[in-house]
Nucleic acid binder design. Sequence first.
DNA 1: ATGAAAGCGCTAACAG
DNA 2: CTGTTAGCGCTTTCAT
Lengths: 333, 333
Amino acid sequence: MAATIRDVAKLSDVSVATVSRVINQISTVNPETQKRVKKAMEQLKYEPNLVAQGLASKKTQTIALILPNISNPFFSDIVRAVEDVAQSNGFTVILCNSDGLVSKEQSYIEVLRKKYIDGIVFASNTLRIEDIEQLKKDNISLVVLDYSSTMESCSIIRAKNREGARMAVSHLLEIGCKKIAHIYGPIGDQTAKNRLEGYEEMVHSFSWYSPTLLVPGHFTINGGFEATKMLLEKHPDVDGIFAGNDLMAVGVLKALHQMGKKIPEDLAVCGFDGIYLTEITQPELTTIAQPIYELGEKAAKILINKINGLLEEDNVYELDVTLIKRDSTIKAH
Amino acid sequence: MAATIRDVAKLSDVSVATVSRVINQISTVNPETQKRVKKAMEQLKYEPNLVAQGLASKKTQTIALILPNISNPFFSDIVRAVEDVAQSNGFTVILCNSDGLVSKEQSYIEVLRKKYIDGIVFASNTLRIEDIEQLKKDNISLVVLDYSSTMESCSIIRAKNREGARMAVSHLLEIGCKKIAHIYGPIGDQTAKNRLEGYEEMVHSFSWYSPTLLVPGHFTINGGFEATKMLLEKHPDVDGIFAGNDLMAVGVLKALHQMGKKIPEDLAVCGFDGIYLTEITQPELTTIAQPIYELGEKAAKILINKINGLLEEDNVYELDVTLIKRDSTIKAH
DNA sequence: ATGAAAGCGCTAACAG
DNA sequence: CTGTTAGCGCTTTCAT
């Protein structure tokens, strides 16, 4: 049906090798010949078969993005960024929801390998060292997003989590909070851990500090909701809450509303991430904003550079976060 | 490096054809032989090369999902559903953000074709008849989501938009609204149009009705915000607003808050879609919920059935919507 | 039930 | 600068 490289070769009276050369823009082709070949390609409406190219070259112009769950707005922004970069570089992206399950990730990685995928952006904290090694062996490039690890044998992009947490607490102190609690994310998640550590560093020397001011919220809205109820039962005098991410902060708000608390008068709330949800709550949420799109963008760019052989060493990139003050900590005027 | 079908053939002392047969579970293989081949595959840790399979069979076990923008929470739920179904059927999904631009869609379709993709779930209203025909010719299956068209030459999954709109208005009337406005989505978008029509059918015979109660909101939060300001300037006595989607309803809420209106006492608000955002606003939003996950799930299932040749005719599936009453229309006493 | 062999459409030495 | 040719790893007639 569709024209093949052979048809083009025949029509332009050259060998398939030469046609292949002009397809792949290999310089050593006579301009004259090139013109002839190009004309033939147009005439025949020739389009290279990407699958055949992939089989022969072991490069498929495809990358994968593995993340816990696309429904999380943080990740959907990441996806958008990665896809944009991929698209403008001639790459296609395969999306994989792992739900944070190692088993799911495992099986994804397996089929991705069988598909000759060129690289993976891994947006999850669950990646294991063995996997990294395996991918290296298979010549599949890897960039990890939002990953905290002491040993780095691959490129990592992340935001300054610990520093952000300190900024959050510092802000709450500044506006006059006398007892600040923290709702933290999943244990085992390094990002959650770093934010918790930032909080602890800021508060551990205060006389009011107690480890019972730490409550788990699982990085979900409902987790934040439940955590708040539990927290206020034990510490009715808390007047500031730093939630480890925005989703939990939303849950905090819901709980406080339900309990009839005034925000920020009775209690100030600060989240982390900077997803757009923080703008639609009432009051709007103060948050430590990560440059979400930039995180995804940078990850994709680095990955593609690696794939194209333009980048050798593995680096760790830490992007800055910024405090966005809103009504959940400061009453407008 | 990795074992190929030939290695397996050699080790199990059969031809590659036979190995291929056991890989593809073709029945005509002697159980004895089959066992031998399978043992060899295990020994060699053989894994079929999907790219090679694709080239030879023109089937890649890959589908694509084209949608306007993953950042829209409605679509991220759709993605999740499609990916889940694909995953559990051995398919991989390529994600494409079109921004609703025909040009982008066009270029995506082109590369998808070159990649021997098996099928496409198209979640957008911008698909053109020519494209449908072209895909058919290329033997690429197609299922369209949330698409309204009089002529159907492909399978379509959508919710009952017109009926949902009528339910929304009907509910607002029941709770006592005396003058109901509608904020509608992009003109040209059939879904937006159907919802608008549902509204009109319900209100056109009332004496208070006027076409100026219709305001455009572009299906965005900000659009809903601006529309509300405009609307209340012209019609300060409006006491009910039906927003064409939840995003706009959120914008409505923001605007009303800013104007100091009480909800639902001064003004009741109803959205459409049933995204989870409606649960985090204050007050929570009444909405006409579509079965979002089910929409995506059904689309993916039908697509895969088509690909596997289990489905012939093209049908239109209209899923039911449900009214979810919340505080934006009824004060929980 | 199984094997031989001809592709699928392209890339990449190697030779000239 | 260009052509020949041998794959890439698998599927699929067509025989047997």
